[in-house]
Amino acid sequence: MADQKQNSQGNQGSQEDSQDPSFSLQRTYIKDLSLEMPNAPQIFLEQEGPTVEVSINVGGQRLADTVYEATVTATVTTRIGDKVLYLVEATQAGIFEAANIPAEQLDPLIGIVCPTMLYPYLRANVADAITRTSLPPLHLAEVNFQGLYEQRIAQLSQEQQGGQEDSGLILPPGMTRQ
């Protein structure tokens, strides 16, 4: 009888363990990487210093019940005057397992934690790609993914509030209601 009680407790313990939240990074990979130098080699003769524009985007999708893909994309455009020195676009992706995570915590997990984990890989891959052009590497600055996430949520909230106040018609840019 004691054995039966212990077995039932052992089974109950493993059932409780399977309900515990778990999160892990399964794999990272470069999903997309492109490098363009449309004005080479003439651009190398320019004496002016380059200007740099960087754009960062985050994405995510469910692959299976507890498996998610998160992505961080960086687009780096470097110009000398009005000519492009180089354009690098890189998407670093990762596969994450997130089990028994409450629904309200899942979006911040995919939108903040996952990109934070992937970003160092992205930075290294962008620097490596640029180094292969024979130009000095560009090291991307640190990014506050929580701040980006909060901005996105605020923007979505404003768009939803704006949609509730008017007739629901979406006007093209530059158009006004009369």
Rank of each mutant, 00 (worst) to 15 (best):
Q12V: 01
G13Y: 07
S14F: 06
Q15L: 11
S18P: 02
Q19C: 07
Q19F: 05
D20K: 15
D20W: 09
P21E: 11
S22C: 07
S22I: 02
S22T: 13
F23L: 15
F23K: 09
F23N: 10
F23H: 04
S24R: 15
S24H: 10
R27Q: 15
T28E: 12
T28M: 14
T28V: 12
K31D: 15
K31C: 07
D32G: 05
D32N: 14
D32Q: 14
D32I: 02
L33F: 08
L33D: 04
S34V: 01
S34H: 00
L35I: 06
L35R: 06
E36M: 02
E36D: 08
E36A: 10
E36I: 00
M37Q: 07
M37F: 02
A40D: 00
Q42E: 14
Q42C: 00
Q42W: 05
I43A: 04
I43E: 06
I43V: 12
I43Q: 08
L45S: 10
E46T: 00
E46Y: 06
E46F: 02
E46L: 02
Q47V: 07
G49F: 07
G49T: 15
G49R: 11
T51E: 13
T51V: 07
V52W: 01
V52A: 01
E53S: 13
V54H: 05
S55C: 01
N57C: 04
N57T: 14
V58E: 09
G59Y: 04
G60Q: 08
G60D: 11
G60E: 11
Q61I: 04
R62Y: 05
R62F: 00
L63T: 06
A64P: 06
A64L: 09
A64G: 09
A64H: 15
D65K: 09
V67E: 04
E69H: 06
A70P: 06
A70F: 03
V72H: 09
V72Q: 03
V72T: 04
T73V: 12
T73R: 15
T73M: 01
A74M: 06
A74E: 02
T77L: 15
R79L: 11
I80D: 00
G81Q: 04
K83D: 11
K83G: 02
K83Y: 03
V84D: 14
V84Y: 12
V84G: 03
L85C: 04
L87P: 10
V88G: 07
V88H: 03
V88A: 08
A90D: 05
A90L: 12
A90Y: 03
A90E: 12
T91Q: 09
A93Y: 06
A93V: 03
A93D: 06
I95E: 13
I95H: 09
F96P: 07
F96C: 07
A98N: 11
A99I: 06
N100I: 02
I101S: 10
P102S: 03
A103I: 02
E104L: 01
E104W: 05
Q105W: 04
Q105R: 00
L106S: 07
L106P: 07
L106G: 02
D107F: 02
P108F: 01
L109D: 14
L109Y: 10
L109Q: 09
